[in-house]
Design a binder for these strands. Structure first.
Lengths: 154, 154
DNA sequence: CGCACCTTTTACGTTTACGTCAATTCTATA
DNA sequence: TATAGAATTGACGTAAACGTAAAAGGTGCG
């Protein structure tokens, strides 16, 4: 008789305390909610980026883990390595002002921004070269298909 | 008494036919001329992208190899994999019109161009998100350094 | 009671383009 | 001839972020 809002996620097969409104989720739901695989969540945990609670051996993720995962995914999105992300997260201290953490994040961000801009320049360059090559190839193809008609049939 | 224009490259320790004006170069000079390592040239050969002649066991590169290497480097620059480059090069036939080769190159180029444009979009997105995060972090830092002066000292 | 489904740990595999020894050989030169 | 400078092949290492079994445990439901 322990109903846990059966309309939300139909994968609730375990007995999780529904007291504080979906306090814990297991790995499957967590993965679905953030569009990652189970392997990814376990991998992040293995790398020390996540630290879900345990019910026996079953991982239980709280909103704290969700916040951390969001940060990880944002970090990855902007091109940080997991190592970088971990370095920054490890500096988090809920009791302090986190000045060090913020400075490190800002420092890393500036460098990453520079990398991204360099990458964009490289890509623009590549696009230019590729477009150039393509127009040359197109011309060559035109010559090879038009020439026989002009010299033999014309 | 076999002089091979000693002013050019001072690394000419072997006896290479200088008849046709620097017909052959060895791997060291080749690497220097194109800014790659010896390892790279051997690797490309191992992958079937280059096929230098041999004098015994010594590799001898001709202008044909140079042309191929130029193409390889161009391909890498615009983001093709070596596999792709090889596929395209393998279709080269000095006796034909190479229509197939050109079409394949064009086809691959179009796809690669699309990939590059998508990458650029992703990078632009990342730059946007990162800049956004950075301004937030800056604000947080300002709060944390300004607040104590305003609330405690003010 | 048994199936289907979720979860667990362990651990090797994948991808790409080389880097980095290591051991050896060849050659020209002083 | 000793030495230094190329060159050779062979083979393991690297980086990043997971993928992909494999083998097994737990559980609610019909």
């Amino acid at each position: 008789m322990k109903l846990v809002s059966p309309g939300e996620a139909a994968a609730n097969t375990n007995d999780i305390p529904a007291e504080a409104g979906e306090e814990f989720v297991r790995i499957g739901e967590m993965a679905k909610k953030y569009g990652v695989t189970l392997r990814t969540l376990r991998f992040y945990e293995d790398k020390g980026l996540l630290n879900p609670h345990r019910d026996g051996s079953t991982r239980l993720y709280t909103r704290r883990d969700k916040a951390r995962l969001k940060l990880i995914l944002l970090g990855r999105k902007v091109g940080f390595s997991l190592r970088d992300v971990k370095q920054m997260m490890d500096l988090y201290d809920p009791t302090g002002t986190n000045t060090k953490q913020l400075r490190l994040a800002l420092d890393k961000s500036e460098k990453q921004l520079a990398r991204l801009q360099k990458q964009r320049a490289l890509i623009d360059d590549a696009i230019g070269e590729l477009s150039n090559s393509m127009s040359i190839v197109r011309k060559m193809l035109v010559e090879r298909t038009a020439a026989p008609q002009a010299s033999a049939a014309g």
